[in-house]
Write a protein that binds this DNA or RNA. Structure first.
Lengths: 164, 164
DNA sequence: TATTGTTATACTCTATAACTATA
DNA sequence: TATAGTTATAGAGTATAACAATA
């Protein structure tokens, strides 16, 4: 051990790269956050290369899985304000990935649809996302991954129900 | 069923779970994100009531667990830019929760320490966080919680190692 | 009168770059 | 020359409020 490290230890300073978590380590929210922060940064890097802003990917995926969805429904599902959704759909239409169609049964609503180009884009993004996640998921067995998903779903149901 | 949910139903909003996820549901990153988003909103609501900005809580906890930590080390640990850390420490000092002390062995560095008032604040915050998490954690057995933490740690180690 | 979508706006969070003082 | 911290600033991301069209 070096002299400076000994000095640091004597002062009760943390060794570089070995920062203590203390009670913070008892919280699952903390663990969740740091994993998710790193993952979302990797995701953001990938999606930025593909020329789209964060959040657009999951919105496009939701539209693709729910043709005719309204902007309000999309906003609620992805957890964004409706004004943010407007900007995002604008960008999708500009790129030709999705389109608004005035709903005949309620002309206030815009029914959202993914285009062929949007579906192709989405397929490519899904592949990129799989590659991005694979580094992390290789740490987990298939059973562990399934269990993890189940636990996260149970937690999500609880936390969503909690806020109404 | 809560009153707000009934109101949502009356307004013809989609019931939770009515919107299909499609391939998005195959990604653990998506599940991670939606749980974490909800949790962090609940956390933010609690911490706002306590008069502190998001991110300050975990930074104060890290300082408390690592007396003498430098601002650079803290920045790296919580994943924020050093300029953001400056603003946060400013706020902590303004509230008397932490203090900077010029490090004698390297006068460029500021060694960070939590104050007595800061520790009292932190203890109160930990209690509030436990209450906030409890609604979610009641869904999980003790064994499941331990397993979840272990899986998340393995994922975090992998994703951190991945980026260097 | 209420709701969907739109626009304008402001506020928060974060990143970048230039600067200082120390090494 | 390099590093720790500071400052100023700009860019995302998000939320709020007022508005038009429709119910």
């Amino acid at each position: 051990m070096s002299a400076s490290k000994s000095a640091a230890k004597a002062r009760n300073e943390p060794a570089p790269g070995h920062v203590a978590l203390g009670r913070l380590g008892d919280f699952v929210g903390f663990r969740l956050r740091r994993v998710q922060n790193q993952l979302s940064r990797n995701f953001a890097a990938v999606t930025a290369e593909e020329g789209l802003k964060s959040g657009l990917f999951s919105s496009l995926a939701i539209i693709g899985a729910n043709p005719g969805l309204s902007q309000n429904e999309l906003s609620h599902e992805v957890g964004l304000d409706k004004s943010v959704t407007v900007t995002m759909i604008d960008e999708m239409e500009r790129n030709g990935w999705a389109e608004r169609r005035r709903a005949p049964e309620d002309r206030r609503r815009h029914a959202l649809f993914i285009t062929e180009a949007g579906q192709a884009k989405l397929d490519r993004l899904f592949t990129l996302m799989e590659e991005t996640e694979s580094a992390v998921l290789h740490q987990l067995s298939e059973g562990e991954l399934a269990l993890l998903s189940e636990l996260l779903d149970r937690m999500y149901d609880a936390v969503v129900r909690d806020e109404g």
